[in-house]
Amino acid sequence: MGLRWEVPLKNLPYLLGGALLTLRLVGISVVFGIFLGIVGAMGRTSKNKLFHGIATAYVELFRNTPFLVQIYFAYFALPTFNIDLTPGQSALFVMILNTGAYMSEIIRAGIEAVHKSQVESGYSLGMSYLQVFRYVMLPLAMKAIAPPLGNQIISMTLSSCVISQISAEDLTFRAMMLENRTFRSFEIYIVTILIYFLLAEFLYLVIGYINRKVFGISAKQKLPTMI
């Protein structure tokens, strides 16, 4: 049985359009996820028991259950509460919450990477609080945050294919549509995997470059988290 690579290749623009959809969803969820992550990190470091408890429950629940289950939960279970979201909305909603949970931990670790002695040495130089924040705390925290944050973007890019399972439109969903029409599963999914691969490698390059140039970190890239 011959392989028919022309099937996915002829439809490459359609698939690449799906890749853009994926990137857009990831972009949105990262931006909102960072905001959520800041709030989550504040909660995790807060002395207020209620705030701390809620933040901890949120972070740990999302980090210790499968992304797929979270997606299904939103899709199947939320309508029970008469919350009706489109597949795309459900997907984005869960992507943001999921990213926010991981970002909370990343940002918290960044905050904890700033040691008291470093802050004190800032003050001892006669800096104001704003100056200490700007020149001591922020750069130190960003240095700790940037590499895992980049990693999280790649994790979400790869894991986001799961949203196709509730018919949210992304690269994988388009591959499924193509498969339904042509039945060339093998060729289509191999090409799809390659597109994800190139997407991820591109992100590795960009993130590695930013880490080196902006933050002066030449740390070896870790593998993405499995979410």
């Binding site: 994988t172 599963s185 093998f186 999914y189 995997i193 994800y196 691969f197 593998l223 499995m226």
Partner: peptide, 20 residues
């Protein structure tokens, strides 16, 4: 490190089956 696990399942099963 650069491919989605879900699609590995899909290729590994549906993909191989589609080849007969």
């Amino acid at each position: 490190r650069a491919v989605p696990l879900m699609l590995l399942f899909v290729v590994g099963y549906f993909g191989i089956i589609s080849l007969g």
